[in-house]
Amino acid sequence: MNRWRQRFFADGLDGLRNGATGRRRRLCRDKLSTFLLALVETSPRDWNYQRSRWSSELMAKVIHDHARDFIHPSTIRRLLREFGIVYRRACPTLCIKAPDKEQKLADIAEALKHASTTHPVLFVDEADIDLNPRIGADWMRRGAQKRVPTPGQNRKHYVAGALCATTGKVTVRYGDSKCSGLFIDLLKALKRRYREAERITLVLDNYIIHKSRETCAWLARHPQFVCLFQPAYHPWVNRIERLWKAMHDTVTRNHQHRSLANLLVAVKRFLRTASPFPGGRHAMAKV
């Protein structure tokens, strides 16, 4: 009786008429996959909702409103996995055009094409080593969050590195400040390591120590070094960023070292086992 009352209050006399018998028609799988794939490429704002990200409940509602088919949110989540759609962190991107982007990318591609023993190409960058651990995901019991002790007052150290594009060999130097001196120490190490090279091409970002007066003066005295600056806001062009990510994932994330000296020992051990990179040895290396 309550069901009939609800139908009458919702739709009047039309609600009392019998609808179609049998199970409701469902969207065919191909049409549903096409609809979902198109849906995730948009934002809920495009459909006049206030949310900025999709939820399975909101997807189910949009499907019901536009395709007249009811699908439970749990079914939506299962289908998304089947269609290869995953829930993950978005990538921040600045809506700023990098000057000379195409030309810089073309120069880097040309250098990589002709890389050799006498003309090595190296990806160069610096990374911060913090005593305060970077917090990351880990396995733990449900409802029992792991505790990572922190020293409270942070201390920092820095590592400058160069990754050879052809061999994967890593050259590093360490310092207590990220200054031109640290970068020049790395250049001196590269000069010794690649003493047979006629030209050494460096792919690096636009950080100030790469263009300082001290650095430019040193480079002027060593014309075998050629600097190719990557486009602004394009860190993924520099392959050594993957090495720094692996270092943080393996060593500095959730670390429990009480002193910076012990942490640096672990970092140096990692960089020794990671060369040549990528090689995969660092992931299973023992202490």
Results as ranks from 00 to 15, higher is better:
D11W: 09
K104M: 01
H222G: 04
V237M: 03
R24F: 00
H234R: 05
T273N: 14
G181L: 05
S116L: 05
A144T: 15
F70S: 10
F83P: 03
R29V: 04
T21P: 03
L202D: 01
W244M: 04
T252L: 10
A160S: 15
V148W: 03
A162Q: 06
D176E: 11
W54Y: 01
F8Y: 14
L186M: 06
L182D: 04
G15D: 00
T250W: 05
L80D: 01
E82I: 06
E102P: 02
V267E: 03
F123G: 04
S52A: 06
W139A: 08
W4S: 11
L182I: 07
M247R: 06
I135N: 01
R272S: 11
Q224C: 09
M59S: 04
T273Y: 11
Q224E: 15
R24T: 03
A10N: 02
V267W: 01
P133M: 05
A162G: 09
P44H: 02
V267D: 00
P231A: 03
T42R: 10
V265N: 11
A160L: 09
L263R: 01
A98T: 05
R5N: 10
Y158I: 04
K268F: 01
F70Q: 10
G15T: 00
I129G: 00
C227P: 09
A232N: 14
T117Q: 12
R23H: 06
G12Q: 01
